[in-house]
Amino acid sequence: MHSSNSIIKFADNTTMVGLITNNDETAYREEVRALRVWCQENHLTLNFNKTNDMIVDFRKQQREHPPIHIDRTVVEKVESYKFLSVHITDKLKWSTYTDSMVKMAQQRLFNLRMLKKFGLSPKTLINFYRCTIESILMGCITAWYGNCSAHNLKALQSVVRSAQHITGGKLHALQDTYIIRCHRKAKKIIKDNNHPSHCLFTPLSSRRRGQYMCIKAGTEILKNSFYLKAIRLLNCHH
């Protein structure tokens, strides 16, 4: 595998990610070809109906990317892709994902109201909320929460407020959970030298032991990302 490519597998789901530099797509296309050959040699069939190609390109002057072909079949280009239940768009915006979460959570609020109507205790209602609603709202929160729009955050928090009104108990705010999980995730990445993001956390001088900086903090894409939030939390806790 070329160093600019990576393959992520989960059960029967395979995702290939390639970094294109200087408009040279050779390594990425060769990786796609190698994957197809590997599948043939191991008696596996690629499902073309579920195979998509998504390009993330923030350059001001974008160029047209020739389509990817697999066995003479053109792979469909898409603007969003659902990866392990998370909707990722080519602009790295989270409205599509948060809208789907709010819709699903609101549907389950109905079940919460019915349980209250049947006379279940507040403790049981809170447990039901945490298992069926909070688990949805908190999924992959370190990846998307920091770059959510104010409108999306308001919609998400309204679900929590509604659930809190129904259960009658104090529920965790999304912001609080986001901060806790960012700090926990950052410490795991720093301890794992093999993590793809380990190189982004650079220790400061010995006089400021235990504090870090993000080596790509100046880039616009990382402006409100998990990485900068994690750096701030690590340095504050120090």
Rank of each mutant, 00 (worst) to 15 (best):
Q62H: 09
N127Y: 10
E79I: 04
N52H: 14
C131D: 07
T124M: 13
H165T: 12
T98N: 00
K103I: 02
N127G: 07
L125D: 04
E76I: 04
R130V: 03
T98Y: 00
N111V: 13
I141A: 04
R161M: 11
N152A: 07
D57N: 13
S158G: 07
K82F: 05
F118L: 14
L137W: 02
S135A: 12
M104T: 13
P66A: 04
E134W: 08
H69K: 11
S85G: 15
N111D: 13
Y145D: 05
F83Q: 08
T124G: 07
C140D: 13
H69P: 00
F128C: 06
E134Y: 10
H65N: 10
W94F: 08
D53Y: 10
N52A: 10
A163E: 00
R161A: 13
P122Q: 11
Q107M: 14
L137K: 02
I166D: 06
E76R: 03
A143R: 08
W94K: 02
N152R: 01
Y97V: 07
S85E: 15
I68W: 06
W144H: 05
N147F: 02
C140Q: 13
D53F: 12
K82P: 02
G146Y: 00
L112C: 06
I141D: 04
D57P: 01
V75G: 04
I88T: 08
H87Q: 15
V56I: 15
L109H: 05
G119K: 09
Y145E: 02
S162A: 12
K154N: 09
K103T: 09
P67D: 05
K82Q: 11
M104C: 12
N52C: 10
L115D: 06
